[in-house]
Amino acid sequence: MLITRRKLFKPLQKKRKEKVKSVNVHSKWKIIRILLTTSYLMLGWIFFTVNLAPFSLFLGLMLSFAVAFFTYDLFIEKEEAARRSLLPRIYLLIIYPLVLLTKVYLASFKMIIPVISGQSNPRVVHFRTRLKSELARVVLANSITLTPGTLTLDLDNDHLIVHWLDAKTIHSHYAARLIKGHFESWLKRIWM
């Protein structure tokens, strides 16, 4: 995964450093964007129609290329700064949902106690994340919301406002450590 990423982006970085004609770089980046969008759409097509017949694959490729050609600008931003979020480490991306699932189950078993006893100590806590890419931040906020007992109320750049059902501290540092848990380190490894 790492090797392919380097191969893909090394020429881009070199050219940007040398400040050669920017037109060439932009057109290259455009082609990469179209191809990436096509591949993501193709993956979705294969998952939806579980069918590996050549005609189906051909049709999917054509359709996803047509869609990607018109909409690549919406999916992938023009700035190359966001390019690291496009290619996550896929083997970690497969493990991450399993981590999330175990956390969700553990937390929902813990959630039963305040439901039965009716005693909870809800608080609103503020903290920041260290994640750089936008996509990783959104995934972090969503996984915090998905875990029972915590609910993301707002995400503003790197500032998160979280409603915590069974609050142990209001101190932002400790609260961040307890709520974010392993999510942040996993996401850091996935999206750098």
């Binding site: 439901v115 998905l146 029972p148 059902l165």
Partner: peptide, 21 residues
């Protein structure tokens, strides 16, 4: 939990989370 909890946020927690799981 949806019936027992006192306000919007806690009820939201109970309903959406247990439904998710």
């Amino acid at each position: 939990g949806m019936l027992r909890f006192p306000d919007v946020y806690t009820r939201l927690q109970a309903s959406s989370k247990c439904a998710t799981t």
